[in-house]
Design a binder for these strands. Structure first.
Lengths: 136, 136
DNA sequence: TCCTACGATGGACGCTGTCCAGGTCAAGAA
DNA sequence: TTCTTGACCTGGACAGCGTCCATCGTAGGA
């Protein structure tokens, strides 16, 4: 995920050890960590990092469009580094496990004009739910 | 919504004044109240009703399938009494206003077998986002 | 009418997230 | 390399949402 750091640096971001560590923790596929989990893993690499910094950094990454915010349950938001490849989420209704999925078709096209009530609809998020192989 | 109370009574629910009041507050179309709003309106009808009771009652209605839980933002969950008519939600990205909508097609059909990763997928929730007429 | 198990109460608690004042440091300038 | 400075980090207080629990109250059957 050094390319993430590069992109951020290109946008005038000051690169600090804290931000580097958060970016490292978010590296990989099918990563959907809560802010607290990010903090715990970051603290493993940089013990004195504070919760506030993790929240700030995640929030900045989200507003720069580099990380996606996902809230599949009513609990903590999760952070998905796979923001440059549009996708939806499949969630286990029992254990909460999350997979990125790529449905066919465009959900936006399924909302006819008379069902938009004057809204300028720009986005459709789909959450599929069911039991994962382990829980079934 | 006395039919809701009837259905609940039929399932062995003890009908108390608190539960009746919560059911009354949830009556109507396009109702998407938070637990706190339900509590505030219920307290208007029954001043000594407690927050815990409202949470318990809402939770029971949800697990009986009579009310739907919706979390469109990362904030408080909202409760939708329109649980017997499948529908999706359209949310204003600015002010948070919510409308029930009925897209065409079945989102479940858009998730091919090889994208299900062994999950027994049973449900698809779609949240459309955009600016409402007032905010645009 | 009486009993009793189910429901209500309200206060403590935990998790998630935000805010702020003050100390620290990355990165450009010289 | 050193200096400077404004952006960044820290830790703790605080607020919102939701859950839990011991205790009290009451709906509804006997």
């Amino acid at each position: 995920m050094s390319d993430l750091l590069e992109r951020l640096r290109g946008r005038g971001w000051r690169v600090t050890s804290q931000r580097r560590v958060v970016a490292e923790v978010l590296d990989g596929d099918h990563v959907h960590l809560t802010a607290d989990e990010v903090h715990a893993r970051a603290a493993h690499l940089l013990p004195e990092i504070s919760r506030a910094t993790v929240y700030n950094t995640l929030g900045e990454m989200v507003s720069l469009g580099e990380v996606m915010e996902v809230s599949t349950d009513g609990r903590a938001k999760r952070y998905d580094p796979n923001a440059h490849h549009p996708h939806q989420h499949l969630v286990c209704s029992n254990c909460g496990a999350i997979r990125d999925v790529h449905p066919t078709g465009d959900p936006l096209a399924d909302l006819p004009q008379e069902q938009r009530f004057g809204f300028a609809v720009s986005q459709a998020e789909v959450t599929y739910r069911g039991l994962c192989p382990t829980c079934a």
